[in-house]
Design a binder for these strands. Sequence first.
DNA 1: CACCAGGCAAGTA
DNA 2: TACTTGCATGGT
Length: 212
Amino acid sequence: MKRKLNGFFQKLYSSFGRQYWWPADSPFEVMVGAILTQNTSWANAEKAILSLKKKKLLAPEKIFKMPLKKLALLIKSAGYYNIKARRLKNFLQFYFDNYNFNLEKISQVDLLSLRRQLLTVNGIGQETADSILLYALNKPVFVVDSYTKRILSRHRVVKEGADYLEVQDIFMRNLKNKVRIFNEYHALLVKLGKDYCLKKNPKCGECPLDGQ
DNA sequence: CACCAGGCAAGTA
DNA sequence: TACTTGCATGGT
């Protein structure tokens, strides 16, 4: 299994190169982006980020104070904008109550404790929590998304319908250089899913992982 | 026109 | 525990 997963990584990396995730100017931008991109293309989430940036509103205190309706309109392009506005507010309430919007403080908390805390916020599930932990706070946790599950079950690494923690565990038990590799590997899997053969209706002929 | 995108929560059985 | 549904814009 170690060899297989590392082999996949090598193939993906040599096919696609470095992905430079997460595209953001600050850890806070990653946190916001993680919520905005839920079940949504990055292109649409990014437009919402830009509309916040353009008005200099991409800051914890600003979004915290902003009326819910105003926030919803600003992030409209990300889709599900009412629910995502509420989720952003929920996260900022958590961030203020527990860490006073202080990045140093939240960064000091150990991975598992912070993961549990994030999961208590309404609107933050496992993938969003792990995206924040890995890409905003550089914690060694693997992010699993629908592409990851599809790719792994299609290549018979896990059974179809394997749950989140099961898939996550496969990566975390079998890879070294945690943060660096977890960051790049997840990004490469998304790249593969987007551009090649692992959409819901695949034509797997050119998939770089075939012939493994 | 249909289908999909870097999910999650709440309801039901 | 396992399955279903609502949430919504914008690109292909």
